[in-house]
Design a protein around this nucleic acid. Structure first.
Length: 763
DNA sequence: TGTTCACGCCTTTTT
DNA sequence: GGCGTGAACA
């Protein structure tokens, strides 16, 4: 195919127009395994979509015979949209274009019986998962303060990401949570049993169960292998082990798999992603064709060169050298400011200036490392009336009122949904508190019925107080009535009726707090969103898997989002805020992950810079408030790793701390300094809770190794027996150390406490 | 059963 | 600095 003479551009179908030779190669190579190594801004999504269009249009396969997987719903949506533009109705459906999770969920519904679930199983979100795990931890007789459910959730997540069922958990890891027989693996097994009993699956299960099914029911696997003539994967560097196994099993003997990825943009290892998957592609699929896309069409050459120079500090890369034929543009601006509010002010000013010069706010973005950074920006933009949108963060479908409403609806669709029932049984207050719930749980156990079913039965017995019985009976009857109503009423209308009749709306109307009105608005928005779906079941399925609702509106807005959320996007003007040691790279990455996670942070920086088409502005503040404490900061090491030729460094500081300025200019090594904070007089060194960087004093930077985390900036060396001071308990002695936590005896206060902050240590 | 208050935790990143 | 949780109290 590649050897065919290239037709004149006018004869080319739309999906082959405007492609450079490697891109065209990627589109036209339709047989055998293909790995497309594509750098940032090289048009990899374009190449992949064009390939899809080519296959469909050339009738190499029907749309239903193509599996096209993305990580985010946004990417799937985009690809579908582009397909519609390219091949119109031919792209209709593409039933297997979606995220890993959504496709796995659809498959699992079909074969749920093979893993002991009904096809209408509920998909738990993080919140449900956590509540269930908490129950499991408590039932196992563990102290949930010492063994937080959240931590167990983390372990289980990791195991599921690796495709490990409880029996496959490595013994060493099993013991890293819990004690004796109540260890991590045992609790994991118990949790899986509970899920099955509840007819529920969590996110990780969607893939894990499919792996189990593929292994135990080879005919099911063979069926899918026959069906999928082509498999395409976007962002392959982000696949975790479970996803990788799922893909390789499906690719089966055909090996007709095309993966697009960029090892330099691998930023999800914390979610179980293994860059190794992309590195071993050629071994997994012998004869694989590797196509490199290296021409960047997005950014100016200054921006690209700066990004290239930064990422070159990483070792263990597949190595690409991106180039552009574009103009030089402006150098990357690096601006140092005094503190967080000033940073927000500066970015706001710059954005407004660009807007006055004719740039669209829609084409500007502020990219931050962590959500907490958005707050100061928001404060400022509200103040000056600059329209902005925050992507991510508190998600619509995770808001309490939305989840409550959804629980009511779930209960109508699935009368056995115990978790939904528990959530709303006393919301609004119905006088069904702990005592009533304990009785209900006991009844459910003895009757061996799901909680909501037990509730139906218990209202006829004397197990509850008369008041509670009446109240519960009303709820049970209401639910029955709503279920009947669901047969005849359009679902958005049904939702409105349910929220009204249950007293839920009234509850918020009676609430005088500031956010009550917002919550009511959210409920209205929820019922409105339901109109976009054909049925209640369809809507609920959508909600559990598609957690983003990009409310698109017409007004131009500046976007604020995390670097992670920005992957795959591009903007004319990008502001990269908070480039300070401890913020970016994050303290956690520095403390825990060693060189490996520092490299991931650097890739994140690379992703950030390469989002920019025309200008990139990096800012860093000398002082930042963390947990309400002022903390001194030095510029991120990534700043100094940018090649000087492509960077313009300025500082708005005039009388700032001399060490900080010197560090910024590279005259001193800030890490060589051990700081003194605003401790409690002579002899006391501030060891935790931040250094309280008072103006006109040198910032305190203590990077000595060891036990106690000191705010966001460093650590202090604490040993057993160390004398400490606590603002409330007075003087004390360290009698135990575990990780970042100190056990401290405060004789004066007559108490022992486990603390990890707000302690001062005498060196 | 509901309300208040104090403590401690939080700030990575997401399907 | 803000929020959720859990213990103590009404």
């Amino acid at each position: 195919m590649a050897s065919a003479p290239a037709p004149a551009p006018a004869d080319l179908p739309p999906w082959l127009q405007g492609l450079n030779p490697p891109q065209r190669d990627a589109v036209l190579t339709t047989e055998g395994p293909v790995l497309i190594l594509a750098g940032a801004g090289t048009g990899k999504t374009k190449a992949l979509t064009s390939r899809l269009a080519h296959i469909v249009f050339s009738r190499l396969a029907w749309p239903s015979e193509i599996l096209a997987v993305t990580f985010t719903n946004r990417a799937a949506r985009e690809m579908r949209h582009r397909m519609e533009v390219l091949v119109g109705d031919l792209a209709e459906g593409l039933p297997f274009l979606g995220t890993f999770h959504s496709i796995a969920a659809r498959m699992l519904r079909r074969h749920a019986g093979l893993v002991g679930l009904d096809s209408n199983f509920t998909i738990l979100d993080t919140d449900d998962q956590l509540r269930l795990l908490k129950q499991v931890v408590i039932e196992a007789g563990l102290d949930e303060r010492r063994w937080p459910a959240k931590q167990l959730a983390g372990h289980i997540d990791r195991w599921k990401n690796r495709g490990e069922i409880p029996a496959e958990v490595p013994p060493g890891e099993a013991m890293s949570f819990g004690e004796g027989q109540a260890n991590g693996a045992k609790l994991y097994a118990r949790y899986q049993e509970r899920l099955r009993a509840l007819n529920a699956a969590d996110f990780g299960d969607l893939l894990l169960h499919m792996l189990t099914i593929f292994t135990e029911a080879p005919d099911v696997l063979a069926d899918y292998q026959r069906r999928f003539k082509y498999i395409m994967v976007d962002e392959y560097q982000d696949t975790n082990v479970a996803q990788y196994r799922w893909l390789t099993l499906l690719a089966g003997a055909r090996h007709n798999i095309a993966c697009v990825g960029d090892d330099d943009q691998s930023i999800y290892s914390w979610r179980g992603a293994e860059v190794a998957n992309i590195l071993r592609f050629e071994r997994d699929f012998p004869g694989a064709k590797v196509i490199r896309l290296e021409q960047n069409y997005r950014s100016t050459s200054h921006i690209l060169a700066a990004a290239n120079g930064l990422i070159a500090h990483n070792k263990g890369r597949l190595g690409k050298q991106l180039f552009t034929a574009g103009s030089a543009g402006e150098k990357i601006a690096v601006i140092g400011v005094w503190d967080g509010p000033e940073e927000a002010r500066l970015i706001g000013d710059h954005a407004e200036r660009r807007a006055r010069e004719g740039a669209s706010l829609n084409q500007m973005a502020i990219l931050v490392r962590a959500q907490f950074q958005t707050r100061e920006l928001e404060d400022r933009f509200i103040g000056i009336g600059l329209p902005y949108r925050i992507v991510g963060g508190f998600r619509f479908y995770e808001r309490a009122e939305v989840r409550d409403a959804l629980a009511y609806l779930r209960l109508i669709v699935s009368p056995n949904d115990a978790l939904a029932f528990e959530r709303i049984v006393n919301v609004p207050k119905r006088g069904l508190g702990d005592k009533a719930m304990a009785a209900l749980h006991a009844a459910a156990r003895s009757m061996d019925r799901p909680l909501p079913r037990a509730a139906e039965a218990i209202v006829e017995t004397p197990a509850l107080s008369p008041a509670a019985r009446r109240s519960l009976k009303t709820l049970v009857m209401d639910l029955d009535r709503w279920r009947a109503l669901a047969e005849t009423t359009p679902h958005p209308e049904l939702a409105r009726i349910v929220l009204e009749e249950s007293g839920y709306v009234a509850m918020w109307q009676a609430d005088k707090s500031a956010e009550a009105q917002g919550r009511l608005d959210n409920l209205i928005e929820l019922t409105r969103a339901m109109e976009d779906y054909p049925s209640l079941t369809g809507f609920l399925e959508h909600v559990s898997l598609v957690m983003d609702n990009d409310a698109s509106d017409a007004t131009e807005k500046l976007t604020i989002m995390t670097l992670h959320a920005a992957k795959g996007l591009e903007f004319d003007h990008v502001f990269l805020a908070g480039w300070e040691e401890g913020v970016f790279p994050s303290q956690r990455a520095l403390d825990e992950g060693g060189a490996k996670s520092l490299e991931e942070e650097r890739r994140l920086a690379y992703v950030g810079i390469t989002r920019a088409r025309r200008t990139a502005t990096i800012t860093h503040a000398a002082n930042r408030r963390v947990y309400g404490q002022w903390t001194a900061a030095i510029p991120s090491r990534f700043v100094s790793e940018l090649p000087l030729d492509h960077v313009e460094v300025t500082s708005t500081l005039s009388g700032g701390p001399s060490l900080w300025r010197a560090a910024l200019q590279g005259e001193v090594d800030p890490f060589a300094h051990v700081g003194r904070g605003t401790g409690r007089g002579p002899g006391w060194e501030r060891a935790a809770g931040g250094f309280g960087a008072a103006r006109n004093t040198a910032p305190a930077i203590d990077v000595k190794a060891s036990a106690v985390s000191v705010g966001l900036r460093g650590r202090a060396d604490v040993k057993l027996g160390a004398r400490v001071f606590h603002s409330k308990f007075g003087e004390g002695t360290v009698i135990g150390i575990e990780g970042n936590k100190l056990e401290i005896d405060f004789p004066a206060a007559g108490t022992k406490r486990i603390l990890d902050s707000f302690v001062e240590v005498r060196p």
